[in-house]
Simulated scan of single mutants.
Amino acid sequence: MNNAISRPLILAMGLAFPASHIVLGLFNIGMLLSPWPTLLAMGICVVLMVVVTTPASGRGMPRRNAVITVAGTALMDVLVQSVLPTGVHPGYAAWHCGAIQMLLVTVALRKQIELAWLGIGIFSVLDFAGSMIHRLTPVDGLALVVTPLMWVGIAHAVSRVFGRCDVLVRDYEDQEKRSGARIAREHARWLSQNEWVTELEHATKPTLTKIAAGDLDAADRANCGYLQDELRDQVRGRVLATRQVLASARAARERGVSVEIFDDRETALPTAVEREVLVQLVGALDRAENGFVKARALPRGQDIAVTILAYDENTPDDEFYLEVREQPEGAGGARVDH
């Protein structure tokens, strides 16, 4: 919004107003001792109009462009002052006062306020000295420089207002992003909870219905035990309790294997680590025929991300122990130690 307002203002100050002063100067060129220096000054003014309105990042302008403008306006003043008549008020033959004023106002609006004040200060000294040389009264000399000084002061104030608007807009955008992220997290949590509740109802309703009816056989009782273990895995295993792991864990329990899955990390695993862990854990569960399988995600910040221990009573010498470590970024993501 700030840029949408300030860009037309910059174009008006940097193009339209200096151009109108050039036209006024051309209509009064007959008052000059010679037209050539002022025509050269007008050419410089046209170049500076392009310099001060060239688009850049945001509302600002390159410091180089501001320095060129300050030097150019000083040269314009010297050129026009050199051919002004002596002893009479120059009127619009001193078109350069308004043109320089608007060029430096544009510099101030484009966040180069210090250089705008430097430029208007140099102009004020040169122009007042030139007025005294051309035998104008001090009041007339001051009249030619006071208005440009006031305009740069106004531009300074407007630029400060725009600066505060920039800060407020950035703060509002940051708040909007934070609010959007918070709403997204809450919505994702709500969806996750709803999905879990739906899955829980789907998994437990048939069994609960049979329990309420008192119509349970041995298979139903065994299924209740497996369902209880699966729900415990989801609560305690979190990051490790994927659908594939839960299915393999149930199949292992049905074969008589004791399965324990714990998540002490409580945050997501890096993708490469998660992929390696799930492959290894599902493999260990699918191979187990007896004994136990234990998997644990360790707290974040430890060197070891996940440990897996599998022991089969039928083959005690083939104990399986594995550590999955997080690797530094760019180093492959995961390392497996047996």
Score class of each variant (00 low, 15 high):
104 L>S: 10
229 D>H: 11
188 A>I: 13
167 V>A: 15
323 E>T: 02
223 N>T: 10
60 G>Y: 04
228 Q>R: 04
47 V>F: 11
20 S>W: 11
224 C>Y: 07
175 Q>A: 13
252 A>T: 06
232 R>N: 12
129 A>N: 06
335 R>P: 03
86 T>Y: 03
78 V>R: 09
220 D>C: 09
32 L>H: 00
93 A>V: 07
17 F>D: 07
140 D>V: 07
26 L>R: 03
203 A>N: 02
146 V>I: 15
333 G>Y: 08
323 E>V: 03
105 V>W: 02
291 G>V: 00
199 E>V: 13
16 A>V: 15
70 V>S: 04
41 A>N: 00
266 E>G: 00
190 W>D: 06
280 Q>T: 03
290 N>K: 05
268 A>S: 12
330 G>A: 11
226 Y>E: 05
24 L>Q: 13
202 H>S: 12
106 T>N: 07
12 A>P: 05
10 I>G: 07
66 A>G: 09
306 V>E: 10
160 R>G: 14
87 G>M: 04
209 T>D: 01
161 V>F: 14
123 F>R: 01
21 H>A: 13
145 V>P: 01
93 A>M: 03
185 R>W: 00
268 A>K: 10
176 E>N: 11
177 K>E: 12
276 E>T: 13
90 P>F: 00
328 P>C: 13
123 F>A: 06
179 S>F: 02
249 A>K: 02
86 T>R: 12
124 S>L: 15
168 L>E: 15
164 R>E: 15
284 A>I: 05
87 G>Q: 08
226 Y>V: 05
311 Y>C: 08
315 T>C: 12
88 V>K: 14
329 E>G: 09
44 I>Q: 05
36 W>R: 11
247 A>C: 09
56 A>T: 05
175 Q>D: 14
95 W>Y: 14
182 R>T: 13
203 A>M: 11
97 C>F: 09
188 A>T: 13
289 E>V: 07
284 A>R: 01
12 A>G: 13
115 L>P: 04
231 L>A: 11
184 A>K: 08
133 I>N: 12
274 E>V: 01
335 R>W: 09
122 I>V: 15
111 K>A: 02
105 V>S: 11
99 A>R: 00
76 M>H: 00
164 R>Q: 15
116 A>W: 06
25 G>S: 11
80 V>D: 09
260 E>V: 12
256 G>S: 10
45 C>Q: 06
290 N>E: 15
81 Q>L: 14
332 G>I: 11
276 E>A: 15
84 L>D: 04
304 I>F: 08
102 M>T: 05
85 P>N: 13
47 V>C: 05
16 A>H: 06
130 G>L: 09
118 L>D: 07
156 H>Q: 14
193 Q>L: 10
